[in-house]
Simulated assay, not measured.
Amino acid sequence: MGIRQQTIDDYGAFVDKFKPKKTTDDCYTPPAVYEAIKDWACREYGIDPDKVVRPFYPGGDYERFDYSGGAVVVDNPPFSILSKICTFYRTEQIPFFLFAPYLTIFSSTSRNGAHMIVTNSTIEYANGAQVNTSFVTSFGDDLIRTAPDLANAIDETVRRVRKEQRRHPPKYAYPRELLTVSRLGKIGRQVEFRVKASDVAFTRALDSQKAVKKAIYGGGYLLSEAKAAELKAAELKAAELKAAENVTVWPLNDKEKQIIGKLG
């Protein structure tokens, strides 16, 4: 990537900071929480788990998704177009059980005939957003209802997931060809390290991260092989210097050096 293109990309990122963010549209449900909700819906409404489909994924098109074979939608859709989605499913007679925003659930579904299940469940999604969530569905006879067993199942699952995350926090390691701010921060007090624009290319996420909806916090730079080796050497040198900072070295005096000189 040239300097000009990099500058354009950085400026675009700067401008994006000031655009309104629909954060709930980027909320990917933790698998354990989704399974608890799906299991409840299947038991409550007699849904065949093998018929459940999830058409809402990055790059997906729910209107062109294949709903043949008696498919039932159980998924977390973009909240900003929830009303449109419900109207589409009602018109096409596709059964659904969808996540919905808690505070605006009435206004989101008042004109499309969807039934509402109010649980006010605080779900922490994969992007870190905590959203108070309820549900809308084509199933059942009640226009509006509560579901204590569903709400409690979600709460218990959320607590378990949080506990497991605290006990087993994720550990990540980047390839040596990726330069991050934290890598420089670890060596900056011990070793001088310089990078020219021709040695690097900016990236916000590795392709392997995108597949699991992860990114490099703060972005990073891909390094040339030579520069990556130089950085690795700098890290080793910094580690040695840092270790030596807390070590008291006792020197030899002249007499001791003379004794050593006569030995052997």
Rank of each mutant, 00 (worst) to 15 (best):
A147R: 00
V53S: 08
V200H: 11
D141H: 07
E156P: 00
I3Q: 07
G12Q: 08
T23K: 13
H168E: 14
I154N: 04
P170Q: 10
K84G: 09
S110E: 15
Y34P: 01
S224V: 12
N246P: 01
E240G: 08
G113C: 03
V181G: 13
A228Q: 09
K19L: 14
E225C: 00
K237Q: 12
I94A: 10
T133E: 01
F56A: 06
A238W: 05
I37S: 02
T137N: 00
D149A: 13
K262W: 05
K19Y: 09
V200P: 12
L98V: 04
I85C: 06
F97L: 07
I85L: 05
P170R: 13
D9E: 14
R160C: 06
F97D: 05
R54A: 12
N76Y: 03
S68T: 15
P101V: 07
T87M: 13
E240Q: 13
R159Y: 04
G2D: 14
T29K: 00
A13W: 04
G59V: 06
A229D: 15
V73F: 05
I187R: 06
K237E: 10
P95M: 04
L222W: 13
Q5G: 09
K255D: 15
N152W: 09
S138I: 05
G188V: 02
N253H: 02
R166A: 15
Y34H: 11
L178G: 10
R204L: 12
E240F: 03
G2A: 02
